[in-house]
Design a binder for these strands. Structure first.
Lengths: 352, 352
DNA sequence: CTGAAAGCGCTAACAA
DNA sequence: TTGTTAGCGCTTTCAG
């Protein structure tokens, strides 16, 4: 009897749409109104201790799980933050995403992830779906986006953080560092070591604008050098992998007879170049100095250890999270800049 | 003038009240009812061409973006798939997540990401929030979860896929391979090379149950060998990094005098071990054979190239996506097993 | 094929 | 502090 009546009113006829426990159920059991439960959930201190206790009990006996979808609709802004990166497989972005996720989940925010594969139109599509979640914030990678993307975001009024790059006009906020400056630092380092025939080995630079900027910053600085030095930029159209590093090194060796200094657009490429040098009998750093970018896991351990530039994806992630939380809490400081420069550090090791 | 008006409409005073374009607006402009628009959006073929055209025009002139939050609430199931991995920084999971994301986004599903840092209670919390999105599916890593997690998931009725491991009873569906078998394959390979003093170098095995299973599969197989062979398992409590590989190798060298065969619980550790061998003057493969796991980017390029076992995170991702889509479309084949074994392949290279 | 109507579960004024 | 009252924007019967 009891069971069947229960069944009837909880299981709507057709779709066995699973009798989810709602806030209403909690309210009934706790003998308060639904809005009190809602209030309790959002600001536990705002309800009387007695009521709070009842509600807490009801929640746990019923196994209530709040429905964030409904909450998001009612509040006109869901608790999701959409992050769009070129690729999650990339260790840099994985680190940043991971950090952002940790920081935001502590505040009850969820992370929705998308990857654009370095395509601006892909990115636009992702922004579109992102926006359809009425997100609390959107995080993009870099400052290069197509016009439509910028327009959509601007029109939405949602806080936007562009990360991993500064030096242009952000849509809203930006956290990162200057890529040309990274290239310049690398160039200065090699020049200071007396290297004069330089090469920049990059991958996918037709799409990866940030890598391209590191390359051009490098080239500029070389031109500006006190002593005359030459510099060539070599691009591998495919992904930035260890394998690409090997290929690029061989091309550089062929194209530049006196090659004595190399900057790679990231440490994976540098590792490949290092392995290839070993294979070709090119002594590092005696004959050729090598500088990477990223300070990945292996960079300190490889042989010789790799001189590299650390951008700190972790710090970027933390700052992104901080800006997002400030925006959400309405604490966007008027006076303070909404562009955060996380800088970069050149870590000198054996390879140079 | 222009700037100030721009500012005004971009930064609403306090709460972003924002007049979003709704389906209603589209309906009005297209002179049809909202439900027709809704129908058109879900099954364009089901409305008359004339109406369809009007609606399409209205959508584009208005710049309408559907609100998935509202849709999810009404449909009682949102278009999100929640994926919970131990860590996104881990290249294996990054690859799988990336693949799942690509496959699902083609079907209009979003991916929400969480990482448990190898903690079962953390995982439970993530499952709780995941469920509060009324997700279309939930993806977990591995088969080890606490009782509460299993209960929550089971009670929810949401399709669940456990990935990267099979060999136990899944909550619902599972895609992966047997870790003990991976360990056994590695053991057989080394034994076949005449190696008799073996070591398994692993990291974080107190939490990473899958690595621990590879280790025990390895140990079992060694015991079972025709010729007598010894095997030690050495664990590094911290994360599985290149650095850890170096440390572990040194410990192994110290503990096992005649050490001649090593299996690492992943390629990062193997790379660190390789570097350390080079530093210590231990010839690979002459004195010690080395086998990794994962077939990461660098494994084919390093010196000597690394013998490793490829689990194919990509294939796992594709299968996970396939099962999810089948579940959602209600095509779960009764007869077919809901456990997919993606197997593993030993790739023999120079290090053994 | 199209439209009217009834919510989905929750939040946020506002009133009490 | 608590309860009442409206929706949030969409999907989904069910009629027409």
């Amino acid at each position: 009897m009891d069971a069947s009546s229960d069944l009837q009113n909880r299981v709507p006829r057709k779709r066995r749409k699973m009798q989810r426990v709602t806030m209403m159920d909690v309210a009934k059991l706790a003998q308060v109104s639904p809005s009190t439960v809602s209030l309790y959930l959002r600001k536990p201190g705002a309800v009387s201790p007695a009521a709070g206790q009842e509600i807490a009990r009801a929640i746990s006996t019923l196994g209530y799980v709040p429905n964030l979808v409904a909450g998001g609709l009612a509040a006109a802004s869901s608790k999701v933050v959409s992050i769009i990166v070129p690729s999650i497989r990339n260790a840099f972005f994985a680190e940043t995403v991971s950090t952002i996720q940790s920081e935001l989940s502590a505040e009850g925010l969820q992370v929705i992830l998308g990857h654009s594969e370095y395509g601006e139109d892909q990115e636009e599509a992702l922004v579109r779906t992102a926006l359809s979640w009425a997100p609390a914030a959107v995080v993009l990678t870099g400052l290069s986006h197509n016009a439509e993307t910028r327009k959509l975001l601007q029109a939405s009024g949602v806080p936007v953080v562009e990360m991993w790059e500064i030096g242009g006009k952000p849509i809203d906020m930006a956290v990162g560092f200057s890529h040309p400056q990274v290239g310049a630092s690398a160039a200065r380092h090699l020049l200071s070591k007396g290297r004069r025939s330089l090469a920049f080995l990059g991958a996918r630079m037709q799409e990866d604008h940030r890598a391209a900027k590191r390359a051009s910053g490098f080239a500029e600085e070389t031109k500006r050098a006190a002593e005359p030095a030459t510099c060539e930029i070599i691009n591998h159209p495919g992904a930035a992998t260890v394998e690409a590093g090997s290929l690029l090194l061989n091309r550089a060796l062929r194209q530049i007879p006196n090659l004595d200094g190399i900057v790679c657009s990231n440490d994976l490429i540098a590792l490949g170049a290092l392995f290839e040098c070993q294979r070709q009998g090119v002594a590092v750093p005696e004959r050729v100095s090598l500088v990477g970018f990223g300070d990945l896991d292996f960079s300190a351990s490889c042989i010789p250890s790799l001189t590299t530039i650390r951008p700190s994806g972790d710090l970027i992630g933390r700052e992104v999270a901080r800006l997002i939380l400030a925006s959400i809490h309405g604490e966007r400081p008027e006076g303070t800049s909404l562009v955060v420069d996380t800088g970069h550090v050149l870590i000198e090791r054996r390879s140079s």
